[in-house]
Every structure is written in C-alpha cells, then in structure tokens.
C-alpha cells in the first residue's frame, strides 16, 4: 500500500508536468505558489529578479543554479526573512508579500536553512515540540497554569515521538541537539519543520554536509513528504539527487529564472549549460569577456557577502 501511494502521487505529479512547455514561468495546472516580479537589490546589485514562476501542488520541485544565482535570497523573500524591493506572490491564493516570517510559517509554508539551525541547548524532543502550532502553553498567563496545557503537550509529545521514530532519532530524544552530528541535525530540522504541519516544505540545500550513508535516508524522507500530500521546493547542488527525486526543475542564474523542465532533460538545455559553464564555454575567451567574467564573479561575491552580513 505504501509503495502504491508513492506511485500514485508520483504519477499524478508527472502527469501534471507531462505536456508543459519548457519555458521559464510556464503556468502549472494547480499551482500552490505563484510568484510575480519579485525583485531584491543590494545596492547596485540585483540579486533576485524573478518575473513569473509557479510551483505545482503535490510535486517535488528542485531549484538549481550556479553559485550566487540568488536561490537562497529568493527563498528568503518568499518566506518573509528578507523584504523584497517589489513584487508579489500568493500561497494557496493568499497574498504573502510583506507578511512577517512567523505568519508565513503559520500559513503552512515552512522552510529549513542551509546552515542548520538546531537549537543546541534544547533537547531533541524539545526542538520537536517547539514546532507544534497554536500551543495553549505558549501564552504568558496560561503558561503559569500547567493543567491548561498538559493535555495538549502530551499530544504534541506523542506526535513528536512518532516523527522522531520515522527519522530514526528516537534514541537521541533526550540528548542536547548540539551534540548531534551534522547529518542528524539536518534530519532533526526537517522533522521539526514537519511538526508545523506544513503544506509546502522549502528545503535549502538539505544534502549539504551530509555523509553518503545518510543521504539515502534523507532522500527517502523527502519523497515521503510528497507521499503524504505535501509539496516540496528545494535548493540543491547535487545533480544526482535532483535527478533522483524531483518531478520538475527550475533553473536560476544571476537572479533570473532561465529555464524549467523535467529533470532528465533539463541538464541538456543549452540555456542551463550556458549558465553553468558560460555562454561560450567551448570557444576561447576574448580579453573583454574575461574582464566581464571577472567583474561578474566579483559582484557575485559581493552579493554573497552582503547576504552573509544581513544574517
């Protein structure tokens, strides 16, 4: 039964993508997230300028692109962690621009981070419990009367333990999150995001710094999300992983969405090759071009630095 639903979800997703054009911004049959004209500038540098992009409900969509393409910045705009200079986007038909990060999460759009944010001095179980929404004990006055929130806390704990078992972290439940390995932290962060009961899970480089043994189990968990009816949008560099699990790929370069398509053909798209390897990667460079490339590389570095500084 397990495998069947996987297949069903995957077939449904693939069917939805079957006849789509391979153009950037192509409309999807049932988009959960629709983005229009999102622009983010850092001084003179335009880090993100996305005209139009849609994410299909119930699919696993990969967002790829060379370093400095603006993928993480784009994520930050959508999730309210940064303020876009202009543009708008809707999630489930609700306008989300200018909505603060915590409200974005409450509406069902939950993200993880490239550099994992495990809450080190909280135990693994406390990390998980924190993810639950609408907790009665999280308001000041009710917190003072344990009988008001005990019952809900028990339910939350039960759900947290189920998730921990699924992610094979149940043996670590009472350890400090800070004592976990890098890969285990990634698992914990993903499990914690699921405590929010999201509709759209946005994973920023879920495989970065994870050893190959854990990679397989992480991949399984990402596929699992789709099986449970969630939509996944993830940033990733590892093309093998992208090919393995995604139904659709969106390619960004220099802040723009330059191509979209199914994973098996996207890497042969000339625009994608150009973006990764340079437009004339097989022709010798002229002096001007070299200069320009150096310049661009420099700008990318500046953008990245600024992003870092903002954090």
């Amino acid at each position: 039964m397990h495998a069947e639903t996987t297949k069903e979800q995957k077939t449904a997703a693939l069917a939805a993508f079957k006849d789509l054009a391979r153009e950037p911004g192509v409309p999807k049959p049932d988009p959960i997230l629709v983005v229009d004209n999102v622009v983010r500038r850092f001084g003179g540098l335009t880090a993100v300028e996305v005209e139009h992009v849609e994410v299909q409900r119930g699919s696993i969509t990969a967002l790829i692109g060379p370093n400095g393409a603006g993928k993480t910045t784009f994520f930050n705009q959508l999730t309210g962690f940064d303020t876009a200079d202009s543009g708008q986007w809707t999630f489930n038909g609700r306008n989300m621009n200018g909505v603060p990060a915590h409200k974005v999460a409450r509406s069902g759009m939950v993200r993880t981070f490239q550099l994992t944010k495990a809450l080190s001095k909280l135990t693994v179980l406390e990390n998980m419990r924190l993810g639950a929404q609408a907790q009665k004990g999280e308001t000041f006055w009710r917190a003072l009367v344990p009988s008001l929130w005990r019952g809900q806390e028990d339910e939350i704990t039960e759900r947290a333990e189920e998730l921990l078992t699924r992610f094979k972290l149940d043996a670590k439940r009472d350890d400090f999150a800070g004592s976990l390995s890098g890969g285990q932290r990634k698992l914990l962060e993903m499990a914690r995001a699921l405590m929010v009961r999201p509709e759209l899970v946005m994973l920023d480089e879920p495989m970065a710094g994870v050893n190959p043994a854990l990679t397989q189990s992480l991949l399984g968990h990402v596929k699992d999300l789709r099986e449970q009816g969630m939509t996944v949008l993830f940033v990733e560099h590892d093309m093998d992983m992208v090919r393995d699990i995604s139904d659709w790929v969106i390619v960004m370069a220099q802040g723009n969405v330059i191509a979209e398509g199914p994973p098996d053909t996207i890497m042969s798209d000339s625009r994608v090759i150009d973006a990764y390897l340079g437009a004339h990667h097989d022709a010798p460079l002229s002096e001007d071009e070299l200069e320009q490339q150096l310049h661009e590389a420099e700008e990318e570095l500046v953008a990245e630095n600024e992003e870092e500084a903002k954090k």
Binding site: T79, F81, P100, A101, H102, K103, A105, R106, V110, R111, T112, F113, K117, A118, L119, S120, K121, L122, E126, N127, R129, L130, G131, Q133, E138, E189, R192, A193, M195, V196, K311
Partner: peptide, 17 residues
C-alpha cells in the same frame, strides 16, 4: 521553551511560526 529557543537561534524560531 520559546524563550530558550530564541536564545539559541531567533531565525529558527521564526521559521516555526
């Protein structure tokens, strides 16, 4: 628990609503 989590990492807490 929310307070202690804020001490560890604000952004993570924000991302959890």
């Amino acid at each position: 628990r929310v307070l202690k989590a804020i001490r560890e990492d604000e952004d993570a807490v924000r991302s959890l609503g």
